[in-house]
């Protein structure tokens, strides 16, 4: 399980890194957190000839807010997001709910959010959140910088719009307003495996009516998905009272949205211990429950806002 030999460079600037990546005659890999890359190298599924270690590029570890946009630099580690206060507003809550599902503390102290966008594993929590929230991916190439929308970024398992000579420098998210509630629920067999299914949800409510819904689906297709049909079905629905018990009733709009997400939005692939039929079931259930969680979050935010105003 030892990695095969490779050449190793440590650029100090983004242009140096891009120059190193320009060596397209060889199999090149960018090393950021390395928590997927080195794992795959142990499993002998990736054998790069050149590894470009970007960990010593100054400034890539910046997490910043500019207006309504959060910018996550390429070296911001997962662990940063464990605190809901790392990012303002409901987005911070969503990240904090999601990040605890990414492996465990020693992995989260190395692995990076941007690395997840580069790796594009279908079970990545960040990638589905980015897709649902219309994140933008900043990449730097020899010809300069370009920005790719998340919906155009993912081309399939481990396949993205990044060209070999490009470096991802950051991912940008729109911040969420105080009228938005968020939820994230992951379903997996044990703490030490990828999600069978996970769902991220953000519900924006005005005057008790859902005016915007964003639902991200994790591991429900060969790439991260946004459940647009399910979202549409929620627009204009009353938020209603909190759900009693562990699930919304069958005729509840959230349960209905879950069934739509499973039947129309998702394109699940079979895997051991989860065939397509089971996955669709899990998607329907998880979407419904995550919406409940997001609705509860929205209610408590609204209540707090009211309290603050009084």
């Amino acid at each position: 399980m030892k990695p095969a030999a490779f050449d190793y460079v440590v650029p100090r600037t983004v242009p140096e890194a891009v120059a190193a990546l320009g060596d397209t005659g060889r199999k090149v890999q960018v090393l950021a957190g390395g928590q997927s890359l080195i794992l795959e190298m142990h499993l002998q599924r990736i054998r790069p000839e050149l590894v470009v270690d970007i960990n010593r590029i100054a400034g890539l570890d910046r997490l910043s807010v500019d207006g309504d946009t959060l910018r996550v630099g390429a070296l911001v580690r997962h662990g940063v997001f464990e605190s809901a206060r790392a990012v303002p507003g409901p987005l911070g809550t969503l990240f904090a709910r999601a990040v605890v599902n990414i492996a465990h503390p020693p992995i989260r102290s190395r692995g990076t959010m941007v690395g997840s966008f580069a790796w594009a594993h279908p079970a990545s929590e960040w990638c589905a959140i980015g897709t649902a929230l219309d994140a933008d991916i900043e990449v730097q190439g020899p010809a300069g910088r370009r920005v790719v929308a998340a919906r155009d970024w993912f081309h399939g398992p481990y396949r993205t719009a990044r060209r070999p000579e490009e470096l991802i420098t950051a991912v940008r998210f729109p911040l969420l307003g105080d009228d938005t509630g968020v939820g994230f629920i992951e379903h997996r067999r044990t703490h030490f495996c990828f999600a069978q299914v996970a769902v991220a949800a953000a519900l924006t409510v005005r005057d008790g009516v859902i005016c915007e819904a964003r639902i991200g689906l994790v591991n429900c297709a060969d790439r991260p998905l946004r459940a647009r049909a399910a979202e549409q079905a929620l627009i204009g629905k009353e938020l209603g009272p909190p759900v009693d018990g562990y699930r919304p009733p069958e005729d509840h709009p959230f349960a209905h949205a879950g069934r739509i997400a499973a039947a129309r939005d998702a394109a699940p692939l079979a895997e051991p211990y989860a065939d397509v039929e089971y996955k669709r079931q899990a998607i329907a259930v998880l979407v419904g429950r995550t919406l409940c969680q997001a609705a509860n979050d929205q209610r408590s935010r609204a209540a707090q806002l009211k309290g603050d105003q009084q």
Binding site: L43, R45, R189, T190, H191, F192, C193, F194, P272, Y273
Partner: peptide, 29 residues
């Protein structure tokens, strides 16, 4: 609850991702 292995058509255990595929109980469980 957790441990088991499936095989592919060639009779190879589907455990290529090691302990991400063969699930031992962790503290959470």
């Amino acid at each position: 609850l957790y441990e088991g292995m499936t095989y592919d058509e060639d009779g190879v255990p589907m455990l290529a991702s090691g302990l991400l595929d063969y699930l031992l109980p962790t503290f959470t469980e």
